[in-house]
């Protein structure tokens, strides 16, 4: 079978990135402009997706929400990836006591449900973009650390790495030139699934009132605001709900497709 998942995932994720990047140019409406004449308005020519309870344009809010969701997902995956790779790499290469210590710390963190950690941190650190990224990265990095450590431990025994070591390559060179490229494929798979997970977690935090505070549009926040108008204006929940669902679907497809491409089981 051709790699349908990869194609679908890449297409959806590209679309998302485009929407996030070009969002403000796709609609002239201001996502924060309140228009009490348009309260709960159904979709129309002026407002293609209708308006929310304060008469704010839903299309503009959804597009701006994409910036928040995609931006945060990218930042969190980036931070988790960097921290996980560094710590997993150090543990694998140092071995012994250091490895033991680092992996015990990872074990304890993994024994602690990630979303709970994120909720607790978000509640303590307070609302804010950076705080949110820290809270979500705290739950994300451990998976990458374990993956990198495991992969490096197995790659280390391969002939080409042994050969490089025999030729006198330094540990840093070994890591950067010979080991990390081998870890890149499984990391890409995990990062793709991870991005989907972060989008859901970020939406959940915003929904629970622990994410980016209003009036800034976020998909989770929009869902929460829309819940009061389920019967009269179901589009208020449908639009952000579909946006979250589509993003997660895209990243799941991408992860599946990459896993197939690299010949790995997920």
């Amino acid at each position: 079978m051709r790699n349908l998942s990869l194609a679908a995932g890449a297409a959806i994720v590209s679309l998302l990135l485009l929407a996030a990047a070009a969002g403000p140019y796709l609609t002239a409406a201001d996502p924060l402009a309140i228009d009490l004449g348009q309260v709960l308005a159904a979709p129309s020519r002026a407002h293609p997706l209708g308006c929310d309870a304060l008469g704010r344009d839903l299309l503009a809010r959804t597009l701006w929400g994409a910036r928040v969701s995609i931006g945060i997902a990218a930042a969190v995956v980036g931070v988790s990836l960097a921290a996980g790779t560094l710590i997993g790499g150090v543990a694998a290469l140092a071995g012994g006591r250091i490895d033991e210590l680092l992996m015990r710390a990872v074990d304890v963190l993994l024994a602690f449900p990630g979303i709970l950690l994120a909720i607790a941190l978000a509640a303590i650190l307070g609302p804010g973009l950076l705080d949110l990224v820290i809270a979500l990265a705290a739950m994300g990095w451990t998976g990458y650390a374990r993956l990198v450590r495991g992969e490096i431990l197995s790659l280390r025994e391969r002939d080409y790495v042994q050969a490089a070591r025999g030729l006198g390559a330094s540990p840093v060179r070994l890591l950067l030139v010979h080991l990390l490229p081998g870890v890149a494929a499984p990391l890409a798979v995990q990062a793709s699934f991870g991005a989907g997970g972060i989008i859901i977690a970020e939406a959940a935090l915003s929904f629970l009132g622990l994410g980016i505070p209003p009036p800034q549009p976020t998909w989770g926040g929009m869902l929460d605001e829309g819940r009061a108008f389920l019967l009269v204006a179901p589009h208020l929940t449908t639009v952000p709900g579909l946006a979250i669902g589509l993003s997660v679907l895209g990243f799941n497809f991408l992860g599946d497709g990459l896993a197939q491409r690299f010949g790995r089981r997920t």
Binding site: A204, L230, T237, G241, V248, L249, N252
Partner: peptide
């Protein structure tokens, strides 16, 4: 299955409420 995985709880809950309760 993949549709089920991708629909967030946040949205599925309200959706079910709209259809089966309201």
């Amino acid at each position: 299955a993949i549709l089920g995985i991708s629909v967030p709880h946040l949205y599925l809950g309200p959706l079910l409420m709209i259809v089966f309760s309201l």
